[in-house]
C-alpha cells in the first residue's frame, strides 16, 4: 500500500485539461521531485493532492482510504502537510505564535471560545523546539512580516513540521531564494525527510539532483517520465520536453 496515490486523476478547466489521467504511487519514505516545464500541470496536481482543487475525475487514495474531494483541512489532519509556493503566513503574528497555532489544531481547545488564551501556552515549548530545528530559534518572537525571505520559507516548513506529517508536500521550497538559502533548504529537507514521504515541486534541477530519490516529469498534464534522476535526465521524451521550452 502506498501512502499516497492517484488513479487516473484528471482536472479540466473550461475546455483545457490541466492534468490528464495521472496515476502515481509515492514510495514510502522516499523524496519525490515533481518537475516539468511551465504549464505542465504540476501545481494543479499538487493542489488536488492537498484538497485545494477538486478533481474532475479519477481518485486520490491516502493510507488506503479514498480522499478524493475531501476539504484541505481533512487532508491535513490525515498527516499530509503542505507548504505554499508563495509565502503564505499570518503577517502580524510572531513565528512562535504561528507554530503554536499549528500545534493545537487537533486539540479540542481550539474551538473553546470561553477559555482564556493561556490554555494553549503549553504548546510553546514544543513550538520553540521546532523553530530551533529549522534554524529560527533566535527569531521566535519576531512577526512573520519582519522576517527576511529565507526565514519566511523556513517558517513555512516549521508549520508543516508542526503537524507531524507522514507525508510532506513542498511547493517550490527554494523558489526565489539566494544560493545560500537554497543550500540551507536542501540541508533542512534532508534533515526533515527522515521517516517521511516527501513530494516537492521544484524548478531548480540542482536541488532535484541533490534531494530526489525519484523524479516524476510532467508535460501537458501527463507524466512522461518517472525514475531516478540520472535515468530521467537521459530520457529522450524529457530532453524533447525541455528543449521545446526556451527558459527551461
Amino acid at each position: 500500500m502506498s501512502v499516497l496515490e492517484t488513479r487516473d486523476l484528471t482536472k479540466d478547466f473550461a475546455g483545457f485539461r490541466a492534468v490528464d489521467r495521472v496515476s502515481l504511487a509515492l514510495d514510502d519514505g522516499k523524496v519525490h521531485a515533481l518537475v516539468g516545464p511551465n504549464g505542465a500541470g504540476k501545481t494543479t496536481l499538487f493542489h488536488m493532492l492537498t484538497g485545494f482543487v477538486k478533481p474532475s475525475s479519477g481518485s486520490i487514495v491516502a493510507f488506503g482510504a479514498d480522499v478524493t474531494g475531501l476539504p484541505p483541512y481533512r487532508i491535513s489532519r490525515m498527516g499530509i502537510a503542505r507548504s505554499f509556493q508563495i509565502t503564505s503566513l499570518f503577517d502580524r503574528r510572531t513565528a512562535l505564535e504561528h507554530v503554536v497555532l499549528a500545534l493545537h489544531v487537533a486539540d479540542p481547545v481550539s474551538l473553546h471560545f470561553w477559555t482564556p488564551e493561556r490554555a494553549v501556552a503549553r504548546y510553546r515549548e514544543r513550538a520553540i523546539d521546532i523553530l530551533e530545528e529549522v534554524g529560527l530559534g533566535l527569531v521566535a518572537a519576531r512577526t512573520a512580516d519582519s522576517l527576511p525571505y529565507g526565514q519566511k520559507r523556513a517558517l513555512e516548513l516549521a508549520l508543516a513540521l508542526a503537524l507531524e506529517p507522514r507525508v510532506l508536500l513542498l511547493d517550490e521550497p527554494t523558489s526565489g531564494m539566494s544560493l545560500e538559502d537554497v543550500q540551507r533548504t536542501i540541508a533542512l529537507v534532508r534533515h526533515v525527510r527522515a521517516g517521511r514521504t516527501v513530494l516537492l515541486v521544484e524548478h531548480n534541477m540542482g536541488v532535484v539532483a541533490e534531494l530526489a530519490d525519484r523524479v516524476i516529469v510532467m508535460q501537458q498534464g501527463r507524466v512522461i517520465a518517472d525514475g531516478g534522476y540520472e535515468h530521467v535526465r537521459h530520457d529522450p521524451a524529457v530532453i524533447a520536453a525541455y528543449l521545446g521550452q526556451i527558459d527551461a
Binding site: F52, P71, Y73, S76, F84, F90, L101
Partner: peptide, 15 residues
C-alpha cells in the same frame, strides 16, 4: 488567523 489567511489556516488543518 482565518481572517488573515484562510487558505493557510485550512492547510494547517482548521475547518
Amino acid at each position: 488567523s482565518i481572517r488573515d489567511n484562510e487558505a493557510r489556516a485550512q492547510a494547517l488543518g482548521y475547518p
